[in-house]
Design a protein around this nucleic acid. Sequence first.
DNA 1: CTGTTAGCGCCTTCAA
DNA 2: TTGAAGGCGCTAACAG
Lengths: 332, 332
Amino acid sequence: MRDVARRAGVSLSTVSRVMRGVPGVSPAVRERVQNAADALSYVVSRNASGLVTGRTCRVAVVVPFLQPWFFGSVLAGISDGLREADLDMLLYQVGDLRGQRGWSRTLPLRRNSDAVITVSMDLSAQECDRLDDVDVPLVLTGQHVPGRAGVSIDDVEGAAKATRHLLNLGHTRVAYIGSRGGAWLSLSSRSRLAGYRAAMAEAGLPEWSVLCSPGDEGGELAMGELLSGHHPPTAVLAEFDAIAVSAHRTLRRSGIPVPGAISLMGFDNHETAAALDLTTVDQSPRAIGAAAAALTVEILHGAAPPDRYVEMPTQLILRQSTSAPRRTEGLS
Amino acid sequence: MRDVARRAGVSLSTVSRVMRGVPGVSPAVRERVQNAADALSYVVSRNASGLVTGRTCRVAVVVPFLQPWFFGSVLAGISDGLREADLDMLLYQVGDLRGQRGWSRTLPLRRNSDAVITVSMDLSAQECDRLDDVDVPLVLTGQHVPGRAGVSIDDVEGAAKATRHLLNLGHTRVAYIGSRGGAWLSLSSRSRLAGYRAAMAEAGLPEWSVLCSPGDEGGELAMGELLSGHHPPTAVLAEFDAIAVSAHRTLRRSGIPVPGAISLMGFDNHETAAALDLTTVDQSPRAIGAAAAALTVEILHGAAPPDRYVEMPTQLILRQSTSAPRRTEGLS
DNA sequence: CTGTTAGCGCCTTCAA
DNA sequence: TTGAAGGCGCTAACAG
């Protein structure tokens, strides 16, 4: 910076003013400084400026895992949104050490970022409060804590919509495969189950849900369980696509035609669902991420209250795995 | 920090020494300071300490895209590796503005990070050089530039291994579906094609490759093209799983049994490949990321030369989509 | 072993 | 419209 000042023949303050784009500098000087900066390919150190302004121009994003497809999409949206506001993104994956000493303490969030975005972390209200000590705005995605800023989809309505789709096709024996707890996203799990239940109740039909264990074979076993009853369902809604895909494998191996004998649908619009022509519910994670970033920026600018909650719509993706039930009873 | 010093009744330097864990402080004082810091839940500001040490304790990771499954896995590995060294991770997605003014200039990498890791960016040697100005170590993954640090898989050998697998099953008409350029990863594309070619040449068989356009239907069309000849292949190797999945769709719709009439295999070990029981080549992206992070840390510590190149092994994943060819000619 | 001093690169008063 | 001085929170070199 000193070099730039010398080269442009001005003082440090003037360079600072030009670099920040604040008014109060004559156009001639401004251009001279700009040229000098370009020639020396000088950029201000956010580190140093942050030291005095208190702002780091960085946003911490906390995810439980990074591998599942879903998180990449959300991050893509966040990345776009933050770049627009010229904010850098600090990424923390805390899956394994969840709870262990509390990532909010372990992670050097304290003076490292201007805001924190969590993705599907399913924080307790208590954990949220702890973050408040740091005096950093918090935006939650994939969950909703009253009084907190956040973005998520309407899981209840999404699952209800999916269920109604099956109902509207004429199905009456509609089963639901949910995931067994212990994993992350348990709030979303509960919401989706609630949506299914509401839609079934609304139609005056009995609900019928089974749980599948985590892992790749959970859906297979759960579907096997559904098939082993006297009156197997004619339609099955899975809590998310991975389960549906796994369940689909059982059907394929058993030679049960989809949607001929059983209609099957998932939730997420995972790309594997597309590969298998599976009807599903799209929740556009990228849009969620973009909305979260936008909300964060607004809160940082004071343009939004720190408890604004945004709900993203879901969309039914109709594909080949659902159809009206056959007239005849039975599977074959 | 002043508060901690006051509370412990020592000077700022002593607090600094304790917080950094450097020797030269009596155990008694050390504990007193530690307690004071804990009570005030004080952590050092990396921003401020970085200003004087020159180290930011941050590593910038640059990816072209974030959505594809592959990147999430690599990031997971990088994240693990960096956390171990207590380094934060700055994430930059530059897909859209690739080249546009040069991300190395646009991005405020200059004083923001101690090192840069690129993931499948396929940089030119010139672009690498430009990063050198910043005097920041660069680690490339998914590509190898001579004289540069990097980690990637042996695409040539992986593709060759895959091809030999098909050859060993007894196939003689083995086709290859590659991706049409213009996209990222073009270096890897070239390597895989080279591997296929080498294996075919080694077996004294004619190579037979088609290109598919990007997008979800590229593989479908390419497979259609292969099927429209007089003597369709009995085995097909796709450059990556997404293409294989797409090609698989064509086969399914055409009622051509896999592997009965045509053996099909991909490359990547994408989860969709597992869903479709597709034989493929695993490249464990998470291990790549972990290795890249480890290498970065070593270079930062001066424990590794800044041009160390690490090659990760690939592994054949045998599943149900490949088998020996039938005796009879023809598809049906 | 501990405290003092002088910056790291920048922004924010103030005064000119 | 511009410049000079002080300090953001911390570390490094010294002195005690």
